[in-house]
Amino acid sequence: MRSLLVDKLAQKVAFRGGGFTFQSRRWVGFLVFVVLLLLAEWGTRSGVISPLTLPRPTDVFQTFVELYSSGLLFQHLIPSLLRLLVGAALGASLGIAVGLLIGLFSFVRAGLLPLVAAIFPIPKIALLPLFVIWFGIDEGSKYALIAFGTFTPTVVATFAAVDNVDRTLIRMGQSFGLSWVSIVRKIVLPGAMPGILAGLRISLAIAIILLVAAEMLGAEFGIGAYILEAGSLYDLERLFAGVVILSVLGVLVSAVIGAVERRLLDWRT
């Protein structure tokens, strides 16, 4: 009787719980790159894509190899990296500090939040001439532009992250008589860290964008200068070689933040 039921009526319950979970599939991203490159190569070789619209990937690679062997690569890369490093470090650390102050003190919040809201939407590139007057045509104005551009998104991300720290944990700290400094250092800061790092991802990408803008004025060397020069000469191979360097830079920055997240936020599931 029972087996009859199983034979006749029993069906496996269909699985419908798939998807919507995150799984690590690194190679997929790599594959997408490779497929796109192969498509471009095939397109330009077969004539489907005219060489005026898109340079051939192998030609771009060729240009890159020349750039490297002539030693020009590092001549462009080193000053750019330095600008990025100094500018982003300045902007991000100031941004985190101001964001913490806004998150912790209601007076500072009342005073600075409208200001931050006012300068956030300004396209910082528009202020470049002003920075040149203030900080000089040399490195100063470039640091300032990148720093200013990373500052505002970092501030917003940081104070939002501080707002999101679990209040019951802060209450707990107070109920055990922890000092204010301890509560900030051991509860608020680690609690806000996920949000701060997520904000840094965005801020640093903005910093790379602004790097090119900063090198528009009075820069002889730098990836941005290289790209702009290639662009004005309509030298698509060199333009793309420069763009690829920026992309690689972006991927590297994102990987570094990923590594920092894995180290600092290993307590999350």
């Binding site: 019951t168 944990l169 209450r171 707990m172 109920s175 055990f176 051991k186 509860i187 680690p190 936020l265 307590w267 999350r268």
Partner: peptide, 12 residues
């Protein structure tokens, strides 16, 4: 000294 309903442990 409090003991809280939701434990209030620092997850990190």
């Amino acid at each position: 000294t409090f003991i809280f309903q939701d434990f209030a442990l620092l997850p990190w």
